[in-house]
């Protein structure tokens, strides 16, 4: 059943609030990322209900701790490979909210000026090497980027995010085998939100943990963590990145989490058992982190101020996007080929 994975089943340490290994500045940075991704996704949701965002949209509401912890543990130059549920991962690497919302809204100020849309957010200058909408396609691609780092002696790590459903597609297995054989500096991060689109992942796998229980087949450690605890995500991935950077090969980390909205804009998520959403909301990653920071002596007012500052950024970004012109139609034919155009014949 879908709720076979109890929310707390994999939390390695229940008393994390007492841990002081992570500096407070890093923790505040992570709170900021949580607040940013939560509020920006909420804004995206509101804007598409108002029909200001067209097409489709796959939100990370409820899953923010994975994006925040993963990005906070990265170094400049590290590369992110995201999925169609990639807004949070893109924002967490520092891509401006206005660029992301502009892309979702089809405006000329968008990250790719409207040529990619919600499912393909890419910002090479921030290390966001693309959001991929074909399930599993980017796992081998991340291997290729890691192969380049290994070959050139670069120290960057390629980090590849994907959902639980991806673990049943061939490219997942090809990539893990390839990366493990070549000891590539790549870290595979599975966001297990319990559902592959509309179907409980538990209904379509013969094991309990879709990613971690397959790791042994590729000689990798079985790592399952609480994906709603940003500190746990940060610490686990910090170790995985360090291992990759040191030349000791790839890791596969399964983060247990939950998405609050449906799979996409079209999905009201009526397949969820009664009470499941509420149960997970009790462990909301943003609220839980506020509580932990409070226990560490951070005043609520300080966190409220961060929230307010971010809301202001999002409001201003929204207004800028609403005022921005629609994407210029003169780019319809540009950048099909590297000469900047689309000519395929003389």
């Amino acid at each position: 059943m879908a709720n076979k994975l109890a929310p707390h089943s994999a939390t390695p340490s229940p008393n994390r609030s007492e841990a002081t290994l992570i500096p407070l500045t890093k923790r505040l940075e992570m709170y900021r990322l949580l607040s940013l991704t939560r509020q920006a996704e909420q804004r995206a949701f509101d804007l598409f209900l108002q029909n200001q965002i067209k097409g489709t949209s796959h939100l990370s509401l409820g899953q923010e701790a994975v994006a925040a912890g993963a990005a906070a543990a990265m170094q400049p130059g590290d590369l992110s490979f995201c999925t169609y549920r990639g807004h949070a991962h893109t924002l967490a690497r520092g891509v401006p909210v206005e660029k992301v919302l502009g892309e979702l809204m089809g405006r000329d100020n968008g990250l790719m000026r409207g040529k990619g849309g919600s499912m393909h957010l890419t910002s090479v200058e921030h290390g966001v090497m693309g959001s991929y909408a074909i399930i599993g396609a980017h796992l081998p691609i991340a291997c290729g980027a890691a192969w380049r780092a290994q070959y050139k002696g670069h120290k960057d790590v390629s980090v590849c995010f994907f959902g639980d459903g991806t673990t049943n597609i061939g490219a997942f297995h090809e990539a893990l085998n390839f990366a493990a054989c070549m000891k590539l500096p790549v870290v595979f991060v599975c966001e297990n939100n319990l559902y592959m689109e509309y179907t409980p992942i538990a209904d379509v796998i013969p094991v309990q943990y879709p990613a971690a229980d397959r790791a042994a087949a590729y000689g990798l450690d079985r790592i399952v963590i609480d994906g709603n605890d940003v500190d746990v995500v940060y610490e686990t991935l910090s170790q995985a990145y360090a291992k990759a950077r040191a030349g000791h090969g790839p890791s596969l980390v399964e983060c247990l989490t939950y998405r609050y909205s449906g799979h996409s804009r079209a999905d009201p998520a009526k397949y969820r058992p009664a009470g499941e959403l509420e149960k997970w909301k009790e462990r909301d990653p943003v609220k839980a982190y506020r509580k932990r920071l409070g226990a560490l002596g951070v005043a609520d007012a300080k966190l409220d101020a961060i929230d307010a500052e971010i809301l202001k950024i999002i409001d201003e970004a929204t207004q800028a996007c609403q005022a921005a012109p629609p994407t210029s139609t003169d780019i319809l034919f540009t950048d099909v080929y590297a000469d900047g155009g689309c000519a395929w014949r003389n």
Partner: peptide, 22 residues
Amino acid sequence: TPISEQAILGAAMGAAMTGLRP
């Protein structure tokens, strides 16, 4: 490589987009 055509082309792509010419 292993018999993994997706890994072959995917790896070529990731390498190409980060500076190699595979």
